[in-house]
Amino acid sequence: MSSLLHVNDVSVSFDGFKAINGLSFVVGTPELRAIIGPNGAGKTTMMDIITGKTRPDSGDVLWGEGGVSLLKMSESQIAQIGIGRKFQRPTVFGAQTVRDNLRLALKKDRSPLAVLRFTGTDEDEDRIIEISREIGLAEALDRSAGALSHGQKQWLEIGMLLAQDPQLLLVDEPAAGMTPQEREHTTELLNLAAESRAVVVVEHDMEFIRRLECRVTVLHEGAVLSEGTIDHVTRNQEVIDVYLGR
């Protein structure tokens, strides 16, 4: 396992409120990592910083072996070097079919002129079908994505991430609003994805994290409170205080 993402002493504040306060951690590859924390711990802001949506006030975010700084890049450049993000609220393109959604996500040249010249190859179509089987939407390929159920949309989004073939996958609360069966399937998908790449799951549902059986980083007030196995962190008195209240 080699390190893929270094977050170094990053801080950011909004109107004086320190959302992230000297946050540092490292994600390796392949790895499945869970990040937990109560509301306001800075989980979403952290993902915003990594994906380029928010610029930190200080600190650095470095990528890969070469240690390229992500802070100078735009969101699309960051996505192109191999960081995929799944939002908490499922965001698929409802006006288009599942197939179109997956085709959009396929790892291809993203520049307008290249897209203009794009004609799908048989390999591309096969890959789309393959992914659709993985996420259990093979039957629904030509249905409009807007007509899918909530859970199906979540899977489609994960499928789109898989099609994107990123080296690092940032997943925000994948299990929110899912039935137990759907959760089961989601867990499988994430574990599958983590076999060949880094997957960071942000979640505050301890039960779900426990199923993932992975290393856990606990965030609190914008900084790392504890890190280790799920059993390790749940025994930590500070973590218990934060979660249960003093």
């Binding site: 994906t51 949506k53 735009s74 969101e75 699309s76 450049q77 996505a79 192109q80 995929g84 993000r85 939002f87 965001t91 393109f93 959009l104 996500a105 993203r110 520049s111 307008p112 897209v115 789109m160 994107q164």
Partner: peptide
């Protein structure tokens, strides 16, 4: 925003 996170230069 979603398209941007897919890596397309919007």
């Amino acid at each position: 925003a979603r398209v941007r996170f897919l890596g397309y230069p919007v």
